[in-house]
Simulated assay, not measured.
Amino acid sequence: MIYRLVWQATTVAHFLVIAYIALGGFLAWWRPRLVWPHLALCAWGLVQLSGLVECPLTALENWARARAGERGLLPGGFIDTYIEGVVYPEAYVWHVRLAVIAVVLASWAGLAIRIRRRRRRPARTPGTSAAPEPEASR
């Protein structure tokens, strides 16, 4: 029972990580510090696309599935098991990947614009209005 719970929790975590990779840049518009974990996960996603290393979440899920007496994920891991051919047809893999990359880049461009606008705004001190005070006539 516990292994089944571990595998299902890992599946949920996988979906959340993938959603954060795709949309986390927009969360950074709200909280700019969130861009750092987003950048890290995007870099990790690119490493995963290379196929050189196994995702630790995939390894954990396969371990828990084996202990629960279930078969592991397909050789392509989480994406091949739960997303490709399920959420979108396998023939559109590169279309979807390019769309996700475009969404991520758009979120980063929007974040850069928002940060630039914040820096250009004059700083407000508590208790003052944003409008400049009129100059005294001489």
Rank of each mutant, 00 (worst) to 15 (best):
H38V: 03
L39Q: 12
A9C: 06
P134K: 07
P89D: 01
L73C: 03
R116M: 11
L16E: 06
G25P: 00
Q48S: 13
V17W: 07
A136S: 06
C42S: 13
P122K: 11
E70D: 03
F15I: 05
V35G: 07
W7L: 08
P126Y: 09
G72E: 03
V86G: 07
A131T: 12
V35I: 15
A123R: 15
R119E: 11
Y20T: 04
L39P: 02
L5M: 08
R33T: 14
G85H: 08
Y82P: 04
E90P: 03
S50K: 08
A40F: 14
R97S: 02
R120V: 10
R4E: 10
I18K: 03
S129I: 14
E135I: 12
I2E: 09
L111V: 02
I2C: 08
A99Y: 04
H38Q: 07
A59N: 12
R67W: 06
A64P: 06
H95M: 01
A106R: 06
I2K: 12
T10A: 14
Q48T: 13
T128K: 00
E61F: 00
L52P: 01
E135Q: 13
T10C: 11
W63H: 12
T81M: 00
I83N: 04
A130M: 11
A66D: 08
G76P: 01
L41F: 14
C42G: 15
W63S: 10
A112Q: 15
W94K: 02
L111M: 09
Y3T: 04
R124I: 11
E133F: 09
R124C: 09
A64N: 04
T128D: 01
R120C: 09
W94A: 06
V17P: 11
V93T: 01
I113D: 15
A99W: 03
G127R: 08
R31G: 09
L49E: 15
W30I: 14
W108E: 14
F15L: 06
Y88K: 05
L74V: 00
R67D: 02
P132H: 05
L52Q: 10
W44C: 07
R97Q: 00
W30S: 03
L49P: 00
C55M: 08
R97I: 07
Y92R: 12
A130P: 07
I83C: 05
S129K: 13
C55E: 02
D80L: 04
R119M: 12
L105G: 05
G110R: 06
V12E: 03
A66V: 04
I21N: 03
V53W: 10
V104G: 05
V17S: 13
C42W: 12
V87G: 02
L111F: 11
L49K: 08
S137H: 08
V93E: 10
W7M: 15
E90N: 07
